[in-house]
């Protein structure tokens, strides 16, 4: 088939041409787009489900949900770009005897108003959706609970120490009672560190002379790792420790074994109170 014939055929098979849908460029691009979209959405479900660590708080669940939701929104757009790019490479690629001779000029298209407007409108709508999602999730995370367990976190080159006000307990491992809101008051004594208990889905920098606050509610028992996420010098890589989400009875015991008086431990662990903690679901 000569190039002219090929061009003619392409022209005949434009989006609204007479041939069956799936043999027209638009149809083929639609199929490629569909395949890419499905792949993207599958990745969007697979990656958080199999690659993310098991999240132990609702905030961690938000991370999971955000990745899935954003991927589902973004996949069709990315897939469209890929579909057109791939299709152009395979269908409209010009092969000639002499590679130094350029193909004849294509039909000029200096722009397409409706397409641009639709593209802009769609991307604006997507951005607004992303924004509303983000703001909704973020403001839900900002709610502070009056009886939250207070934990003071101190970053130091290259170790975290935790103290539980009212109990006199100071440790280097972070134990938390399950389903009890907790507020971390994070600070540093030297440089900026990043307090990052990854599976709790929260992160904030430990800044010298400033106390920054994050809140979460661990809702799943099990051990986790706290890392430093802000390069803090020589042993940055070693600045991590384990944490553990335990039941309030275990937490009570743990506090006492670390030197708290039984009353103080019970108050801090919430085992003696009315148990008005908000369990935010599992």
């Amino acid at each position: 088939m000569s190039f002219e014939e090929e061009v003619d055929e392409i022209e005949a098979n434009t989006l609204l041409g007479g041939a069956p849908f799936f043999s027209r460029p638009g149809g083929k691009i639609f199929i490629i787009w569909l395949v890419f979209t499905v792949i993207g959405v599958l990745i969007g479900f697979y990656a958080p489900h199999h690659l993310l660590p098991v999240m132990q708080s609702p905030e961690g669940g938000d991370v999971w949900a955000t990745i899935v939701f954003f991927t589902v929104l973004a996949a069709p757009v990315a897939a469209l770009v890929y579909a057109i790019a791939f299709y152009s490479l395979f269908a409209w690629r010009h092969r000639s005897e002499d590679p130094d001779v350029p193909p004849p000029d294509a039909e000029p298209q200096r722009g397409n108003g409706p397409v641009t407007v639709v593209w802009l409108a769609v991307s604006t709508v997507l951005v607004v959706v992303l924004l509303f999602w983000g703001i909704a999730v973020w403001s839900a995370q900002q709610v502070s609970h009056p009886n939250a367990l207070q934990v003071n976190v101190t970053g130091q080159q290259w170790l975290w120490t935790y103290s539980y006000p009212g109990t006199g307990v100071e440790t280097r491992t972070l134990d938390l009672p399950v389903n009890r809101p907790v507020q971390f008051n994070v600070t540093s004594v030297d440089v900026t560190h990043g307090f990052w208990p990854a599976v709790l889905g929260v992160q904030v920098d430990a800044n010298p002379d400033v106390v920054t606050v994050i809140r979460t509610t661990p809702n799943k028992l099990g051990k986790f790792i706290v890392q430093c996420s802000q390069l803090c010098g020589l042993y940055h890589a070693f600045m991590n420790n384990t944490g553990d989400v335990v039941t309030s009875q275990q937490f009570d015991t743990w506090l006492q074994s670390n030197g708290a008086t039984p009353t103080a431990a019970a108050t801090a662990a919430g085992t003696s109170s009315s148990g008005s903690t908000t369990a935010m679901g599992k």
Binding site: S88, V115, S123
Partner: peptide
Amino acid sequence: MLTTELISIPTGIIFLCTIGTLWKGSIWT
């Protein structure tokens, strides 16, 4: 968050222009 996500609109325009240029072109690879 708003301004950051807004940037994806003009970035998307760049993609539109790129694939629009490729669209039905005589691709010389």
